[in-house]
Amino acid sequence: MNASKQEQRTYLGIPVPRPKVAFFELSSCEGCQLQIVNNEATLLDFLSLVDVRAFREAMTEKFSDYQIAFIEGSVTRADEIERLRKVREQAAVIVAFGSCACFGGVNQLKNRFSDPAWVKQEVYRGHPVETADTARPIEDFVKVDLKIFGCPVKKEEVEKIVTSLVLGKTVVHPKYPVCLECKANNNLCLFDLGEPCLGPITRGGCNAWCPNNRFGCWGCRGPAVDANVAQLQKIMRQHGFSEETILDRLECFGGFAEQAKELRSKIGGKG
């Protein structure tokens, strides 16, 4: 229709599409989606960039004509795989939204147990639930076009990425580690204070959210590009941190799953 054509936005004369988007959640706390809704100051601007067709956290209507799907959470149940495949059929772009979707997140901590039946019994007791033995990132099941890291995702970063998407800019994730932003913020190095920190190997972009508050980094955004994980493990040992402490950090969000697995097998730790 003519009317809608007139509403076509432009940026410096270049047409800007308003993609139809939907938000979905698999096994997760929905905290990442909450980040979007929380962002009151810029929420209206955000909504003018995209046409939200489904978003359980924010609206009751639900349409399935979306082009971009933001998927929060990891896959822990068979029905989630089915839902995921359906979304993949519809969406031109699938965004793994947050650390659970990208790496399995905190949910994947259960993957370390060798006896899932025992775990289910311990956790759910008399209330058994249908859940797989492992929690998996969504790219284990469908092709993922874009990842947004973080537990939770950082709203400013989501806005920047979405703005880039509609303008046709390349979405570039920081390749540098958290350390760079931590130093930029004039923080004390947590190693000096005796706190373990994965800042030197974890992908930046969070503006050193945790170290700013004197919490060591837990690696929620996964490894920085060319991260020297082996060297940091060595340094942590030199600082007197136990293998368990190192393992706890590496294992927490699933971004360092490979290194965590290697370390676990080396120290012979059980779940």
Binding site: L12, G13, I14, P15, L167, G168, K169, T170, V172
Partner: peptide
Amino acid sequence: VGNLTGVLGHAVRGTR
């Protein structure tokens, strides 16, 4: 090939 050149590919006459 990249970010700027990608967007320039959609630029129009008159873009400043």
